[in-house]
Amino acid sequence: MSDALCFGGGVKTQLIAVVVMWQWLKQLYHRLGSPKWFYEITTGWIPWLAVLSVVGTVVGLVMGLLYAPADYLQGNSFRIIYIHVPAALLAQSAFMMMAVAGAVYLIWRMKMAAWVAKVIAPVGASFCLIALLTGAIWGKPTWGTWWVWDARLTSMLLLLFLYFGVMALQQAMESEDSAYRAGAILSLVGLVNIPIIKYSVEWWNTLHQPATLKLTEKPSMHPDMLIPLLIMIVTTYVFFALLIILRTRNEILWHERKRSWVKQILES
């Protein structure tokens, strides 16, 4: 009897928890869907994010460039990972975020999501380009040449092509809504394809170059090398968040320029 009661009670609390969470998610969704709410809440975040980005960059780079020990094989040239790895990671996550934001727009027609997806594209592509450039610079001392058809570099190159495709498509569409939707569809198709592309490129690479020095794969990294890298990765994500928030706020101001709350901000 008491067991049954306990059981029933457990289900009930679970149900309540689910309902509460659902309500919370719904509220969050409605808030996120409101440009005004987003604009107002992020106003306070910007200085914090900016300070965090600057401090993180300075600390991470000083630790990485000055205090981390030199690599036993690559010497000092390995230190470019403090830029290269965060940029490469971010370029991939950014594509995923762009596709998810695009999907939210396609399914629920949330305008905010479309603006976020639109502003991510050039930022993600820039980080992709940074990863490729630093990879090439790193390749010169490591391999003796600027470009090697290394699996990671090749995947990054293809990711850059995918970014170019999304941006070119968005620019070519006549109506704004079509541009958002077309970009969203293409980035979703790209998202499904990214693992396939990565896998096939890696497979192709092992086939053709069985023994090359991998750029980033290390069995174990010394903590003195790893900690600055982790700091740089987190900082890059913070900086990315800052960029996206700033650019999204611009989109909001532009699209809502006829609304009274924007006019008030512009006047003050």
Partner: peptide, 23 residues
């Protein structure tokens, strides 16, 4: 389908689709 309504969509189509053809 994405580029059907776009002027000079042929070149754009190639840009979009070529990376997806790599695998």
């Amino acid at each position: 389908a994405l580029t059907a309504g776009v002027r000079s969509g042929g070149l754009l189509l190639s840009l979009l689709i070529l990376p997806l053809y790599i695998p």
